[in-house]
Design a protein around this nucleic acid. Structure first.
Lengths: 313, 313
DNA sequence: ATATTCGATAGTCTTTACCTATACCGTGGC
DNA sequence: GCCACGGTATAGGTAAAGACTATCGAATAT
């Protein structure tokens, strides 16, 4: 059974005339005749009665027609849904976002995306960078935002921006200056992520470069929890500056720039290189970059010292 | 879009591996690869992500699959219903039967047919012969039982048997003998069908041959009505003997053989020559013939005189 | 590092669907 | 009753398309 035969069959059933039906499907009358004949032969039954003047369906033909039309309709729909997906008129986009980045980037991002693609079902998972990566590899995520560099051969990455890390301490803790050298971290009690987290490794690496050994008094896996612990005076911590700023409303935390050197890490998009990215995914990636640029130019990166000045004034 | 592509697509979606899928649809791996590629190109979207080890559906592929599978299922069903019809496991058979014949032939016929084909929906219309013919020509009927000969070029006829016509009179009417010559009909008041009916024409032709002019006192279109009028003494009538016998229970009618000559007409099957006849129709035609033969051998055609003798005894 | 699995591509061949021309049948008009 | 016409089936030649074998290239597993 060929799709061609089904199309010809429907045309003939509709026009009840081989020549007219043939015109409508843009073939010659003999071609249509042969195809209909082939279909009837395959089914072992006449589908049409050739009654001199008119050609009309047999009972078998009528039964066949019902299902044949449904089949064609389904195939049309199959193509339709794909085209709608391609035009981002429908579909689902699953994004994994590094928890800290999630806090300040995602809100404006999803609002813009929803505006542009109201019919795409967007799913955002705030996760540690490692889970974003494993989610991408397991094909659970369409796209990810995580820390760079990412030396995985199956993943393609697109740098978005760099995050500066800054020191966060309870207001009561005496740090001395608005800016602190890395090496001055040595005496501070620190609350950090567990050792298997990228951020922790990053901090340790920076400390090593500065020749200091951090005193970790508490490990917590969520940056949110860490900030709470710091606010209660458990110790200081080191977190992305932008993230902390978005959480700095309580008034019980102070943000102190680090330098010599300023620890920073790159954040970027990642996706499976071989995976097909539909329009929605491509546009989301684009939006990430433009949104981030606007965020940076908006705030012109006021330093931690300026923030403290503002809060004091 | 080709049906082949849909089949390959489903196979690949199922096995997630080009080579395996190719085996299952009995083609080489490159053939399947090309067809899938063609389908994706036509849809303008990747349907599968080729991820090293496994091949899995993209979101577009998943959407496409839903409808593609439904389409294939519909086509399977289309073939299925046709095959069931062909095997007479379903379907409908519309039969037009000459009213008089209907009374005695149809009961045993439908009972046998229903036994043999319980799932065929049988529709029997008792009609005058002319309507059976027009019904066949208009393709409203699958098969007809009507008077022969039938000189219509589009119709094929199969003789079944001959019906003898007999005189029916109210018991009070003095006819004189158990058999009556055609020419003796002259003085009798007759109740006959309207002139456009075959049976009426037949009677008139026989009368003309016998050189008599019938006195028609009443015309009625239904044989049932005619018998009632006769029973009430309105006059005598001429009807098929077998038909009258099946209605002879009241005791107020006498059946008298006609001879010199005995009027008789042929009854047979008819159907559109070009029309396709499925198994159910063919079997119905067969059953007509065998049932009729059995009816004839059963009763051994007792004459009207014998019947009257029986009733008298 | 090497071997193996797996998908894509190139080239050749076979199949098949298309077209034109024509035969055949039935119908309707003259 | 004969002829013409509308309409479908058939025949023969051509061109497109699918299938196959061989091979490449990439990625994974040993």
């Amino acid at each position: 059974m060929e799709l061609r035969q089904i199309h010809y069959f429907i045309a003939l059933a509709t026009h009840q005339n081989f020549s007219r039906a043939a015109e409508h499907v843009h073939v010659s009358q003999p071609s249509l005749s042969v195809q209909i004949g082939g279909l009837e032969k395959e089914l072992g039954t006449r589908l049409f009665d050739r009654l001199g003047r008119k050609v009309i369906l047999t009972q078998a033909g009528e039964l066949f027609r019902v299902h044949a039309e449904r089949a064609l309709r389904e195939l049309e729909q199959a193509a339709q849904v794909v085209h709608e997906l391609h035009g981002a008129k429908r579909g689902r986009l699953v994004v994994g976002v590094l928890s800290t980045v999630n806090s300040y980037l995602i809100a404006p991002l999803v609002s813009r995306f929803k505006q542009r693609f109201p019919d795409i079902q967007l799913q955002v998972h705030a996760q540690p960078s490692s889970e974003v990566v494993s989610g991408l590899l397991a094909n659970r995520l369409d796209i990810g935002i995580c820390l760079l560099p990412l030396a995985h051969p199956q993943l393609t990455t697109v740098p978005l921006f760099e995050e500066r890390l800054a020191l966060v301490a309870p207001v009561g803790m005496r740090i001395g200056k608005r800016r602190t050298r890395m090496q001055d971290l040595a005496p501070l009690p620190l609350v950090l992520m567990p050792v298997d987290y990228c951020l922790r490794k990053m901090v340790e690496a920076e400390c090593a470069k500065a020749g200091v050994h951090p005193q970790v008094v508490l490990e917590m896996s969520s940056p949110e929890g860490i900030l709470q612990a710091v606010a209660q005076g458990t110790g200081a911590t080191i977190l992305p500056e932008l993230y902390v700023r978005s959480r700095l409303s309580g008034g019980d935390l102070q943000l102190i720039d680090l330098y010599d050197p300023t620890p920073r890490h790159a954040v970027g998009l990642a996706y499976l290189t071989k995976r097909y990215r539909n329009l929605a995914a491509e546009e989301f990636a684009q939006l990430c970059q433009t949104t981030m640029k606007e965020l940076q130019s908006d705030s012109k990166q006021p330093t931690a010292s300026k923030i403290r000045a503002r809060r004091a004034g």
